[in-house]
Amino acid sequence: MASSGSWFDSCSDIQGVLLDISGVLYDSGAEGGVAIPGSVEAVKKLKQSGLSVRFCTNETQCTRDHLVTKLCGLGFPVQREEVFAPAPAACIVLRDRNLRPHLLIHPDCRPEFEGVDCSSPNCVLIGDATDEFSYKNLNEAFRVLVGLQDPILISMGKGRYYKETDGLTLDVGVYMKALEYACDVEAEVVGKPAKAFFLAALQDMGVQPQHALMVGDDVMNDIGGAQSVGMRGLQVRTGKYRPEDEHHPSVHPDGFVDNLKQAVDLLLQHRGQ
């Protein structure tokens, strides 16, 4: 399929690029997952081009360090400081507001919350807990929330599903919605599509939103989120992409590309590189 739209005709003012990780660089799954063909080379080329590059992920199945190690193992040139993930952002929120969380998160993500006071919780924090999303654990989180006078639910991302090597898989947003419905609360989201999350990455690059491009596979959280802060959003047809995304009722990506490789080739070509 050819790329549609003319996003690349007006990309000469792009100074920085934010890349989603899962579904754009690689597909997660058993044994660490697999790189999406062409993506390793594309990231290398992008970094060599002089454009600022950051990685914006809603990954909460592991620590940021573990994720970086995994990506390096697949051949991606990625450093810890370049990766923006929800858990470190959530820790800042907890600290700033004196919140003691009841955690419903993946066991491999726990090290990110080392030192966080979880005694007599006054909020519930959830991440992509996968198998930990059992009835028993959800019910425990529910009971904490209904027991609070002013229930606070914080969700690391609100994605509906993502792609694993063996198929599409439910994401944290589904369990966030379940708890919202059960307790009549609205969750606060850290990570994509929260504006603060994109703005933190942009600030780190020193790039204004109108000069930045987000590349992702999630039409709502990557594209919709980036556009809400004034960035441009490019959707790849890899990862969780489904053809219905091209007719999304509310989010209209600035362009579609078959994969990250095509995005980087077109971007650099039309910037005269």
Partner: peptide, 13 residues
């Protein structure tokens, strides 16, 4: 938790 939260979650997904 009753069935509602799980129905709602699947509807959202």
């Amino acid at each position: 938790l009753g069935p509602g939260p799980f129905v709602t979650g699947l509807e959202y997904a």
